[in-house]
């Protein structure tokens, strides 16, 4: 059982028997008023979305979903193929189901695939992924303390802001939840 204070982006809950995922979440509270939890929810079966505001007394059941560790194999047209390394069972997710995960989806990466009645619905990346910088402007030496960032392109083609000293070919660690640079990896 979840309560409203457990709500956050990515949480999956059951409403009227269907699995829903919280796609946007914001805690709001008028200064003297009660805590409110504003959510945008997406039906994981139909894709339909709606907005709802919950109070702290509201409670939810977790969605009946199965999470399986699978390995990313390849992309074929607009389908992404994943395999269960124990059973060699393969499943396909659409571009839409993959969503932002494609930004950090490396070949052979082990991910969690979410299944509802054996149908793949969604993907969860590891929180941290180490990834190679494919393209970067050279480092302007001397700029060691400013909070400046520069854009680089990752091996997946995704553009990300990093500190100025990061150069092409280096490996960096990215937080897949925020999509932000964390640190350089040796």
């Amino acid at each position: 059982m979840y309560t409203a204070s457990d709500l956050r982006k990515g949480l999956r809950i059951k409403i009227d028997g269907d699995p829903y995922i919280v796609t946007e979440f914001n805690f709001v509270k008028p200064g003297k008023g009660q805590a409110l939890y504003r959510c945008k929810l997406k039906n994981m079966m139909t894709g339909s979305q709606f907005e709802r505001t919950f109070r702290s007394v509201d409670a939810f059941d977790p969605a009946d979903l199965e999470e399986k560790k699978m390995q990313y194999l390849y992309k074929e047209e607009d389908k992404y193929c994943f395999m269960d390394n124990n059973t060699y069972e393969q499943v396909y997710l659409t571009e839409e189901q993959i969503g932002d995960a494609k930004n950090f989806l490396l070949d052979n990466l082990e991910v969690e695939i979410l299944l509802f009645e054996n149908k793949p619905l969604d993907i969860s990346l590891p929180n941290f992924v180490d990834i190679i910088v494919a393209e970067a402007e050279p480092w302007a030496k001397g700029d060691t303390v400013s909070g400046n960032t520069k854009p680089v392109v990752l091996q997946t083609g995704y553009q990300i802001q990093v500190p100025p000293f990061i150069e092409a070919g280096e490996k960096i660690r990215v937080d897949t939840r925020s999509g932000e640079y964390l640190t350089r990896v040796k």
Binding site: T144, V145, G147, T149, P163, F165, T183
Partner: peptide, 20 residues
């Protein structure tokens, strides 16, 4: 002068907050 290697150890989230 700080080495490039030393830089990478810094907490980037904090470094970015300097102006704020």
């Amino acid at each position: 002068m700080q080495s490039k290697k030393g830089m990478a150890e810094k907490n980037w989230t904090l470094v970015k907050k300097r102006d704020d």
